[in-house]
Design a protein around this nucleic acid. Structure first.
Lengths: 227, 227
DNA sequence: GATGGGCCGATTGTCAACAATCATAACACG
DNA sequence: CGTGTTATGATTGTTGACAATCGGCCCATC
């Protein structure tokens, strides 16, 4: 028999709950700054407070939630500094991933990434901003997945939840859908061509652009308290 | 009054337990592959199983523990692939950190790092391998801390626990203590001089060296199962 | 001697109850 | 009017108990 038999891994309950919470945060169902009521949430999820608390500890470790003793856990509020830091970390991870992809199998990796950009262009044509965001996230997730690095993937997963949260909360929009699609296409093409320097340069520029866009959006959380 | 008043942050119990567990893993008190018995551990720590389990979920999220449903949580076993991946991730984080330090305040950052290398040289003179390892870890932790990036710091913290664990488990030793100290000194000097390219190059080389050293050490966990 | 079934101890998963803490608001006091 | 005090309701933190699951062992069977 072929090795189609993948070892059965029973996901643990807190891990499942944690995924739900991440999704909810990314989609803004749990708004930045909002407190997570244990009793209420556990009822909604159909579990008791124990497993829920364990799941919340996971997200707290990731930095998606902040815990204040005897008061509760809250969804993080993203300040300007946080946005900058998010993309600093994303750049660190994705640049390393891109370099690794080129090193492993540039041609194949590039092709897979170009496939995603095709769908981005379709979404741009349809003027479907949501689909565009979906494929955008998918592009970056695939880029890191192709690097086959468990650690980079884990880090990146957290960062993408934060990114999604920001996009949702700030309702960021590109000036043009096509510009957005093209930026990703160029990165994919550079990777396919094995041009590490170019891919690296494009990625950095892409991140800088994203920060600039998010910063000019109306702030929902101030970066410093008033004097 | 000056801003010497830091906001009071009551650390949560699972966070405290998690730190203890990380220390224990880094120092090899909890050996790779070992199962963590909840009842026994909670007794030792003087808490009940609830908070302990929450702490374990944190480390599981970090990838320091692996959880198998209905069986328990175990300290990760580090394969050759894991060692490579660890240093791939560390390179990603530390290269970004170095670049950021140079961007923020190269002179000051370089000086602080050089201070650490002084202590490394002293440890090398004393032929004190443990002190050398301590200062080694301190150097890299400081490098990332100086970048003032919460996200890079959080990621790096996890990676350094893994690194420590490997050094302890594999009893890795440099060929020469002085070589080890010098490598760090060069990196610090490059940062102080604001030479980004040089610092980046040295960091990559430093990581490659580390992987090579760890790989030639006797393996305690095989990377692939026998045919 | 190898295989399969069934019991048993140990450990984990889950839950509900209790204790501790905090924010709020009402109120007395200077 | 501002300050300090005290009840109160709600929420979190912690614990112990119970249910579920698993690995190991013994033993009957072929």
């Amino acid at each position: 028999m072929a090795q189609l038999l993948t070892p059965v891994v029973q996901e643990t309950t807190p891990a499942l709950i944690a995924r739900q919470l991440r999704r909810a945060i990314g989609q803004g169902e749990l708004a930045p700054g909002e407190q997570l009521n244990e009793a209420e949430l556990s009822r909604h999820l159909g579990v008791s407070r124990g497993p829920l608390r364990e799941a919340m500890q996971r997200l707290t470790q990731e930095g998606l939630l902040v815990s204040i003793r005897n008061r509760g856990v809250f969804v993080i509020e993203v300040t300007d500094d946080d946005v900058r830091d998010m993309y600093l970390a994303r750049a660190a991870v994705e640049r390393a991933a891109a370099a690794r992809v080129i090193q492993l199998d540039a041609k194949d990796g590039g092709k897979q990434l170009l496939e995603v950009t095709k769908r981005m262009r379709k979404a741009a044509n349809d003027d479907d901003a949501d689909a565009l965001t979906e494929t955008d996230v998918e592009f970056h997730a695939l880029l890191v997945a192709l690097a086959k690095s468990p650690r980079l993937s884990r880090m990146h997963n957290t960062l993408m939840v934060e990114t999604r949260m920001c996009i949702t909360a700030l309702e960021t929009r590109y000036a043009s859908h096509f510009v957005r699609a093209d930026e990703h296409h160029e990165i994919a093409a550079a990777i396919r061509d094995g041009n590490a320097e170019e891919a690296d340069r494009l990625l950095v520029a892409h991140m800088d652009d994203a920060v600039a866009r998010l910063m000019e959006a109306p702030e929902e959380a101030s970066t410093a308290e008033p004097a």
